[in-house]
């Protein structure tokens, strides 16, 4: 399952980050690394992007990019 499919307020763990190298590295540097726990907090009023809580931080990320993050 990828992050864009994760249901609201469900906790999950990052298992892998895929995709183009520059995008992948960016995500990993933000902390989307194997084992990191995250949670989808909410979606923007128009449905996209989504707000994701990762550790102590909140991020906003487009669903298209969230597809690169594989969670469990």
């Amino acid at each position: 399952m990828n992050l864009s499919e994760l249901k609201m307020n469900k906790r999950a763990m990052v298992v892998d980050v895929v995709g183009e190298r520059s995008i992948k590295c960016r995500m990993m540097e933000f902390g989307f690394v194997f084992g990191a726990e995250l949670e989808v907090v909410k979606a923007a009023p128009l449905g996209d992007p989504i707000q994701v809580k990762l550790g102590e931080n909140d991020f906003i990320i487009r669903k298209d990019d969230a597809k690169n993050i594989i969670v469990e």
Binding site: I23, M27, F30, Q51, D58, F59, I60, R62, D65
Partner: peptide, 9 residues
């Protein structure tokens, strides 16, 4: 080139 849209809140 495509850049990911990800920002810290």
């Amino acid at each position: 080139s495509r850049a990911p849209f990800i920002m810290e809140l």
